[in-house]
Design a protein around this nucleic acid. Structure first.
Lengths: 128, 128
DNA sequence: TTGCACCCTGACATCGTGTCAAGGTCAAGC
DNA sequence: GCTTGACCTTGACACGATGTCAGGGTGCAA
């Protein structure tokens, strides 16, 4: 399978497939005589794993760790669970931070009449 | 005031002050004979405004718009309010997305024993 | 005068991703 | 066999916000 097919099958863009290859997240595939990359089902599977992990907010370092665990038949599930829980914790922190910013903004907006007059507590709040 | 003083007074790093100057978010300040940038209170005030807006998650484009409204004595507060509400809405979307990712992860982790055995539904979930 | 803290510009790095350019390859249809 | 269009190759530039480093100039105090 060419890179375009692997991209369609995995949901990872060609650009990112080449990128993941460069940073070592996926192995360099075999090349045809033409120089074209040649992917198999295993490669696509690995790419889909990466796409899923990325969609869950893991960064490339964490994905690398997960892939290593995934390929390691002897790993303990506790390692994976620890990674997942740490990631969940961080996601929770980020979500709370965003929610806090949102409340601050809504609070400011609440006090703003939103009419034709220039007076606006939002700008005053930002200027403090 | 030199750039270091402005940085300390505003909470914006020297690096970012120069950056904001380059992209036009703050005016180029006067220079001393030595070439040193020379800042006044107004500059610091503007930088603090930027720091606050940035902390609320506005990107530089939005901050530029807010600054223009801030400096415009005749603006209608409705414009500012619209920007703030749109930003709040986007923050809410992001927070919900993070929360959703977090729940997915916790759900996977919940089904994982987290012991010495290699069997792990988290990895199986990622591989789908 | 010496030394230290400060300033200047410019460049490179990060991270994930897009896009473009210049060129090679392949398969289908004529 | 040749043309055409879709696909592949590498490399480079870009974003946005920020850090850091290098090489050199300035200002002030002891």
């Amino acid at each position: 399978m060419n890179i375009g097919g692997a991209a369609r099958a995995s949901g990872v863009s060609e650009r990112m497939i080449r990128h993941y290859e460069k940073i070592g997240l996926v192995p360099a595939p075999a090349r045809r005589g033409s120089g074209y990359r040649d992917y198999g089902e295993d490669d696509v599977h690995r790419l889909r794993f990466i796409a899923n992990a990325r969609d869950l907010g893991f960064d490339t370092g964490e994905i690398g760790a997960l892939l290593a665990l995934w390929s390691d038949r002897g790993r303990a599930s506790s390692e994976v669970k620890a990674l997942a829980l740490a990631r969940a914790e961080e996601l929770g922190r980020k979500a709370r931070r965003l929610e806090e910013m949102r409340r601050s903004l809504l609070h400011l907006a609440d006090e703003c009449r939103g009419d034709e007059r220039p007076d606006c507590p939002i700008l005053r709040g930002l200027a403090d």
